[in-house]
Design a protein around this nucleic acid. Structure first.
Lengths: 196, 196
DNA sequence: ACAGCCATGTAAGTCGTTACATGATTGC
DNA sequence: GCAATCATGTAACGACTTACATGGCTGT
């Protein structure tokens, strides 16, 4: 593929497990080329211009296999949304609600799109998968599809969990707000505004 | 706290939603100080040495509140384990199994430690939480604890999901290996080694 | 001619990791 | 005296983001 095509894949579809902007892709392709992991071919485009189409090399394939087999230290948790939620006591109930609602909407979307993607994978109906299957021996096709489906199903479950977490968050905010109002009423306290 | 104490908090316990090494903490504290978000006090230590103990300033508290309320673009998925699993067809069944097992072990550990942490939070029995509650008005205590418990419960559920995903992954590898062996047997094919 | 897409870069800056480096204090 | 821990940095490098920049091609 060309750098442009790669960038589009990352940009357009949310179905990708990784993301990179074109400003990272072009230099990286050059580096990979310098390391002999991919090779470039100048393809004419129109009359004057050319584009660079990259293919993986034998060395690249080996490096890819090495990387897949390599066990890497599990990523340390780093989740801005959860970190923030840890300090929601510093915000108003309204703000906390808005945050949970944003979270909810986002993962509902993700879930829908990944479900659609799994459907396409099962039908072997994506451009990339078809290209992958073309060059792979017949008896590996099931495994190729199955691993990818497993990954995206995992992402779907993860998205469902996030939706559930945000929903519970909203219920929690409701409960806390009711409790606060109850305190004020029964104890006859002045009651703080809920931030501060 | 001092930079050292902060570093320890991140280092020692896995219970933190964020992580940072001391090489990031010390310069960052200096930057925060320069921006007036924290203030430092030189505290003597032994006879000759001093350490710098930091406290949040009023401006820092405002910035923290601003940050908590700010809705930020949801992080794009970037998960090396899932990305790798997408290409497990390039590895042997044995390797795929090893990867899933590593994943499983890691999240089982996380789960256990977060469960322990939730227990401590509910008992209001961590040093940080006690310090937080000391300076917060009584009627906010429930909310402070509840939000934190909600976050760590979310992380526990997430860890459970990852354990489940890895277990299913192992079952998938078993199934694919049986299918491959079946192919070889029934069709009498030479059969590829499962990588390549 | 102009809009929208194809195509490819560079630059500045932040964030994060790993390694290098130093010295004081405490308890045995 | 020595080890473990307290305490604080710097440096090099790579990953990532955002913005700046340029120009060709295609269809209307």
């Amino acid at each position: 593929m060309t750098g442009y095509q790669l960038a589009k894949q990352f940009d357009v579809s949310v179905t990708f497990v990784w993301h990179a902007p074109h400003s990272q892709i072009y230099p990286e392709l050059r580096r990979l080329e310098a390391d002999g992991l991919v090779s470039a071919e100048a393809v004419p485009r129109g009359s004057r211009a050319t584009k660079r189409s990259y293919s993986i090399t034998e060395a690249g394939r080996e490096e890819l296999e090495r990387w897949v087999a390599e066990v890497q230290p599990p990523a340390r948790e780093r989740d801005a949304a959860y970190l923030k939620a840890t300090y929601f006591e510093l915000a108003s109930f309204e703000t906390a609600r808005r945050q949970f609602e944003t979270h909810l909407r986002h993962y509902r979307n993700q879930q829908r799109q990944w479900e659609e993607h799994v459907r396409q994978l099962e039908d072997r109906d994506t451009a990339l998968l078809r290209r992958r299957l073309e060059i792979a021996p017949e008896e590996t096709h099931d495994a190729i599809v199955a691993y990818k489906v497993h990954v995206y199903r995992g992402l779907i479950e993860r998205a469902k969990h996030e939706v559930e977490w945000a929903s519970e968050g909203l219920r929690l905010v409701d409960r806390l707000e009711r409790d606060r109002a109850g305190d004020r009423g029964s104890a006859g306290l002045a009651g703080q505004p809920d931030d501060e």
